[in-house]
């Protein structure tokens, strides 16, 4: 039973069709990665799911209750301290101030932020710290669905791995579903249960890969090998423009996920 069901989604900016015939399911507790080259409409699709855009045409059934989103940039409110930024979503849910503060301090500990950092304004913090705060702001409301719009793409590898670990820990504890978009296949292999490939002009889903290895058993070697296998896949090569050729799109038109397993 999927908690998010999208059928026949089309979207146009003026006369340009940016998304065409998108059918997508996301089950409760599942992590789905949408991969594709820049400009293929991944962000537009995510914004539609987040409710920031209204699609031109679609049937969307969304059973998730709390949704949080992390954007490409941290997007912190510059006039609020780190603590007030983290608790923004809680404040919107009318959680009392003292409880907000307590929860912010708890989450700050797991994110490696000190009490001093919590009193600082965003401009006083490094980019990495700002990303942690953005992650804290998303996780603190304990969302059922977490939408990630390439939030880690600008971070260094050490920080990326640390934030991946925090994210996985949260997903395991809470059983949240995650829909992440990325153009980094290795990030997708590291975090996702299922990878869906998207191509541009207009944005379409062209293939799906299920990763059956449990997250606990994913070693670095396995991640590298799986990424290499995926990189050798025709759909991915053609989709990213690494190889010439045309794709047979009829395979993905039905809604069940029957893609190749890895």
């Amino acid at each position: 039973m999927s908690a998010l069901q999208i059928r026949n989604l089309q979207h146009k900016y003026a006369l340009t069709e940016v998304l065409s015939n998108i059918n997508l399911d996301l089950a409760a507790g599942e992590t789905l990665a949408l991969v594709g080259p820049s400009g293929c409409g991944k962000s537009t699709l995510l914004h539609i799911i987040a409710g920031l855009l209204t699609p031109s045409e679609a049937v969307i059934k969304n059973d998730f209750r709390g949704t949080a989103c992390m954007f490409q940039e941290p997007r912190l409110l510059p006039w609020k301290t780190a603590e007030d930024n983290i608790t923004l979503g809680l404040k919107a849910l009318h959680v009392p101030k003292q409880a907000c503060r307590q929860q912010a301090q708890n989450i700050a500990k797991t994110l490696g932020l000190t009490a001093d950092d919590l009193n600082k304004y965003p401009h006083e913090l490094s980019g990495g710290m700002q990303s942690r705060i953005a992650l804290g702001r998303a996780l603190i409301i304990k969302p059922d669905l977490l939408l990630l719009d390439e939030p880690f793409s600008a971070l260094d590898i050490g920080l990326k791995l640390e934030l991946y670990r925090l994210l996985r820990q949260h997903i395991t504890e809470r059983g949240s579903s995650v829909l992440m978009i990325t153009h980094d296949l290795m990030e997708a292999v590291r975090l996702a249960d299922r990878i869906v490939m998207m191509i541009p002009e207009p944005g379409r889903l062209i293939g799906e890969f299920t990763l059956q290895q449990s997250h606990a058993e994913r070693s670095e070697t396995w991640i590298y090998q799986t990424t290499a296998k995926l990189m050798a896949n025709d759909r991915i090569r053609i989709g990213f423009g690494l190889a010439e050729g045309s794709l047979n799109l009829t395979e993905h038109l039905h809604t069940q996920h029957s893609g190749c397993s890895i």
Partner: peptide, 11 residues
């Protein structure tokens, strides 16, 4: 971008 944050977090 900040308006989107307000919308996503249902302010």
């Amino acid at each position: 971008h900040l308006k989107a944050v307000a919308q996503v977090y249902r302010l």
